[in-house]
Design a protein around this nucleic acid. Sequence first.
RNA 1: GUGGUUGUAGCUCAGUUGGUUAGAGCGCCUGAUUGUGGUUCAGGAGGUCGUCGGUUCGAGACCGAUCUUCCACCCCA
Length: 455
Amino acid sequence: MKKPSIPKGTRDFSPVEVTRRNYIMDTIKGAFHNFGFQPIETPSFENSETLMGKYGEEGDRLIFKILNSGDYLRKVDDATYTEKDSGKLTPKISEKALRYDLTVPFARYVVQHQNDITFPFKRYQIQPVWRADRPQKGRFREFYQCDADVVGSTSLWQEVEFVQLYDTVFNKLKLDGVTIKMNNRKILSGIAEMIGAEDKLIDFTVALDKLDKIGEEKVKAEMLEKGISQDAIEKLKPLFSVSGNASEKLATLKTLLSVSTIGMEGISEMECIVNAIETLKLSAATLEIDVTLARGLNYYTGAIFEVAAPKNVAMGSIGGGGRYDDLTGIFGMKDMSGVGISFGLDRIYLVLEELDLFPKTVTANTRVLFINFGEKEALYAMQAISALRKEGIPAELYPDSTKMGKQMGYADKRDIPFVVLAGESEMSDGNYTLKNMKSGEQLKLDRAQLLSKLK
RNA sequence: GUGGUUGUAGCUCAGUUGGUUAGAGCGCCUGAUUGUGGUUCAGGAGGUCGUCGGUUCGAGACCGAUCUUCCACCCCA
């Protein structure tokens, strides 16, 4: 018989994995609450028109489309069918699609429920999203995002709080050495303006983003290839060597971008955030200015964040976010600024695993197993089990009265620390024999003693 | 979506230039041990070699397609 399997890029989670994932999720949730965010949930699939075109051309390709139900092909006209143009056929046979991220559904939620929402609205959302990508290490086709966003406030204090939120979570997870990289879309625009390549902003930033990965020369080559002039690239030169701490970098940028109003605006925003964080201090993370950071440009308009795992772990970013002044604009609601961040649960899991940072605490395991000696003995055991459970001590009875070796082996394999043996002789004395599986020590106890011993 | 890579027992993997009945370790089951697990010993079960097709007298091995794994690109958590 063919062995069953699961689709590419999806995973099953074992009890240990679920426990560990819950540990991360509970930590993040706790911090979200602590910072005043409220939870919402949205459907796992949306109308296609809600998602399509919101993530760029590449995004559209990676959205999982859901086939219409019924005899969907019959409703397609012959011309469209014969043409075999997927782009034209898809909207006719698919009207729903799986959630691709949590930000766009959130924007939809805000616009749809605007009359019931009190602004500024701080929401968090922890749900799976789906991408039809090719899986790699730390990249799956089904994965969880943990997002926190605020809409309805342009205050830079939000950005400051998000930096603190990142720091709080990583501190609680004992994950030291993460770097929160920060940039600002306005600075990128300013640079493009300065070199006279405003129209090539996206191409220019995508190339710039690769600086630490492929090096200065290759970045220049890619820019040249995208039609950015040699002259313009020359003007970028000082940018490649911006160094020092945050304040020093800002000072350098100020002289470089003095000609650009928008660039200066970005610098002053970053300055505000950096100054606040310098006073408030971070404990687990470092805030770093990185003018080459350029993610999510399809909607970010101000601050851009990306969190890098500690340097000794080979892992891409474990979180990201930014400010988007007009996210709800795509659904017809103007002047609603938003800013938010996201935690990559699956990647954080891999990092904690690699650094052996999961707490050793005994997982929500059974504390005591009662050996089953038969009907009468099982009933006797159940009385003690009920009493233990009432005290909050996880206890269970081996369901079948099979050979003792098998029952003991079960306790051993499941790492259950105590076993109770209660057969005829114990029953007649009103006792229970408690065995410590680690030391092998055995004690005869009455029910009250058993309870206090297992507490 | 582009290029490469991987698939043999429940798990980790051997398997020679194509040649008879495909192996090991771990795990599992049974017994030594009918009220004592983790150790030891003896025995046992388990595989249409990812799938489909092709070459050949003969394919786990060679060829093609497809699925899967991992990697790079693209992009991203």
